[in-house]
């Protein structure tokens, strides 16, 4: 067990971060090369003003019309994304790790709050799952891979919660937690989770096209 722990928390962790960083860079470079090679005209429309205008309207809860029309989804999705990104970075036990490994000192979340946020992520995943099952327009678009992605996202949070509270079999769940986190990280550049990387760019493009060329809002 200890060896496995050593492995997943050591070399595999380094690998996961490397794959995440290099993979993400690779995907972005690949996108830019493709634009340069085949859709160069896109560059001529891009505008900082309209890119930021669009990103701004879509990063603020309820700033876009569709967010107002879907208030619950908006609340859930913002809660989900904030907790998903904030919790792993600022969790106390992770902060300790960051300091130990990389000598980075970060502010950390109070334990109770991180518990709530973790539960929020898990809860949101249930919501998304329910949405995929319940809403015909979402079910129609849902593939097995969408459930898998949801599971992959939920896994590190579920296992982390179990491990942290040491409810059952701490070492096993700790390893599972680390492993699932690493899998998630490595999956980002190569699955639809890459929407995290591309979101600013698709928004910037639409924002620029709507603002710069069409003189219209895109929210």
């Amino acid at each position: 067990m200890h060896d496995i722990y050593q492995f997943v928390s050591g070399p595999l962790a380094r690998l996961a971060f490397t794959v995440f960083v290099i993979g993400s860079l690779y995907r972005l470079v690949q996108m830019f090369v493709l634009v340069y090679r085949k859709e160069k005209f896109i560059f001529s429309f891009m505008s900082w003003k309209y890119s930021l205008r669009s990103i701004f309207h879509w990063i603020i809860p309820f700033a876009a019309v569709n967010m107002q029309q879907q208030p619950i989804m908006t609340l859930v999705t913002f809660t989900f994304h904030i907790c998903l990104l904030v919790t792993p970075v600022f969790l106390l036990s992770h902060a300790v790790l960051w300091e130990e490994r990389w000598n980075i000192r970060l502010w950390s979340l109070p334990d109770q709050l991180s518990d709530i946020m973790t539960l929020a992520v898990i809860g949101c995943c249930f919501f998304f799952w329910g949405r995929r099952i319940k809403l015909p327009e979402v079910r129609y678009l849902t593939f097995a891979s969408d459930y898998a992605l949801l599971g992959m996202v939920a896994a590190p949070f579920v296992t982390g919660l179990i491990a942290y509270h040491q409810w059952i079999d701490y070492p096993f769940f700790m390893i599972l937690h680390i492993l699932s986190g690493e899998i998630l990280l490595m999956a980002v550049p190569f699955t639809r989770l890459s929407h995290m990387l591309f979101w600013p760019f698709t928004r910037a493009y639409m924002g620029s096209e709507f603002g710069n060329v069409r003189h219209a809002r895109d929210w």
Binding site: M31, K38, N66, Q70, E137, S194, Y205
Partner: peptide, 29 residues
């Protein structure tokens, strides 16, 4: 090029675009 690739790979199958389309709204969702 990139537009098609990114659009296809980024779509997270959330269905939020549905309300945007009058066909969808008119054909009983």
């Amino acid at each position: 090029g990139a537009r098609l690739k990114v659009y296809v790979e980024t779509c997270i199958h959330c269905g939020l675009c549905s309300e945007g389309c009058h066909y969808y709204l008119s054909y009983d969702k």
